[in-house]
Amino acid sequence: MEEMKDAILEYVIEEYVEDEDEVMTYDTPLISGGIVDSFSMVSLKRFLEAKYKISIPDEKASPEAFDTVNKIVELVKEFIG
């Protein structure tokens, strides 16, 4: 599970974080914290689906469910089964 957390955090930093000094943790609010705008969520969803070979329905890919790395991990676990 730690591996999944790290992989997602690494992707988030590379994909969204512009300021190198920004400290990111598994609980940093991504959407509500303004790091990821709702428009840009689609690439995160596609990354998760491709990496973990899952399909996340749009209604499950809510800003709340994508708000922290920890929450994203919970969501992914739900679909990995």
């Binding site: 705008d37 428009f39 840009s40 689609v42 690439s43 596609r46």
Partner: peptide, 10 residues
Amino acid sequence: IRLCSAMHDT
């Protein structure tokens, strides 16, 4: 973009 049904990424 919001008015269009195509997928959007940045």
